[in-house]
């Protein structure tokens, strides 16, 4: 087992009477890609702010690089890269100056900053926009710049809060590609997301969070195998509610779930089940067979969907 880069025990964050994070334990190894999966309001962002050495836990302990962030905040942050949920770039400054100024915050020598800025502009595919004001960039470009900016100090640990929320599919894939490269270069990644496909793509291991607690932990495939069936049949009926089909569908699968817009049947062989359904005279408006995903794991564990 490789070196532990981050370790947290009994982490709690309270805002007044509200408990956003209710005692979580995580341990992340160097070089790992670790994910926090959960819907909005699950406590992911509060957790991220604690592990990025910005906000102090209400109780519990964290060690990052073996240091305590509440007392050694500056030393910890010097070795971290943080990509917040919402871009907080300097809108009035050019792309280049955004990177250079950030380098100054880390007290890097100017020569090093210039060199890394050039590399990071290429990495973020922004070399041609270097002198443009950030205000004029597209959403995807701003996001790539925020990531590039977080890399100016060559962090050992990169923390990304919802890195692709609000981006179009093409921009997402470009971003994922950049993150793979970092992973390949040995950077430890911590990602929060409420997209199950993103979690499956990026994470070696993840925890599922709900209401401030961790409800499951493991590798994406292992979680799916443990908490869901191999395949899922999705049926849509021309009806106002899919609840009324629960009884009719129950004989076809060990587990059936009704969502507002569709019914889900958890089975081992989807095609066979679909064949049985059609044979029984049921006529869904549409039908689809797919593999189980983390979305199904989440539904199983919490009774809710990730994106509402």
């Amino acid at each position: 087992m490789s070196e532990t880069i981050l370790e947290a025990h009994g982490l709690v964050k309270r805002f007044g009477d509200f408990e956003a994070v209710r005692g979580i334990d995580v341990s992340i190894a160097r070089g790992e890609s670790f994910g926090f999966l959960g819907p909005n309001g699950a406590g992911k962002t509060s957790t991220m702010r604690m592990i990025s050495a910005v906000s102090a836990p209400s109780s519990g302990s964290i060690r990052i690089f073996g240091l305590d962030p509440t007392t050694d905040g500056p030393a910890v942050r010097a070795r971290l890269g943080v990509v917040p949920q919402e871009d907080n770039l300097e809108l009035e400054l050019s792309v280049r100056l955004n990177l250079e100024m950030f380098g100054r915050y880390f007290d890097l020598p100017r020569r090093v900053i210039r060199e890394r800025t050039r590399e990071l502009l290429a990495f973020a595919q922004l070399s041609e926009r270097a002198e443009d004001r950030v205000d004029d960039l597209s959403g995807g470009m701003k996001r790539r710049l925020t990531i590039a900016r977080a890399l100016i100090n060559q962090p050992e640990l990169l923390i990304l809060d919802e890195p692709t929320t609000g981006l179009d599919p093409q921009a997402r894939h470009l971003l994922w590609d950049r993150l793979y490269r970092l992973k390949r270069d040995g950077v430890t990644l911590i990602v929060t997301t409420h997209y199950m496909d993103e979690a499956e793509q990026l994470c070696d291991r993840l925890v599922v969070m709900d209401h401030g607690r961790i409800v499951a932990e493991g590798a994406p495939r292992a979680l799916i195998e443990q908490h869901s069936s191999r395949e899922v049949v999705e049926l849509r009926f021309a009806a106002d509610s899919h609840e009324e089909y629960l009884d009719v569908l129950a004989p076809f699968a060990p587990r059936v779930e009704a969502l507002p817009d569709r019914a889900l049947l958890y089975v081992e062989d989807g095609d066979a089940t679909l064949h049985d359904i059609h044979a029984s005279g049921l006529t869904p408006a549409s039908a689809l067979v797919r593999r189980s995903s983390l979305e199904d794991v989440f539904l199983r564990l919490t009774g809710r969907t990730l994106v509402d």
């Binding site: 500056p74 030393a75 300097e90």
Partner: peptide
């Protein structure tokens, strides 16, 4: 509005 300080606080500055 721009949350520029939040970015600064993710660096060694406090």
């Amino acid at each position: 509005i721009s949350h520029a300080y939040d970015a600064v606080l993710s660096t060694p500055l406090d």
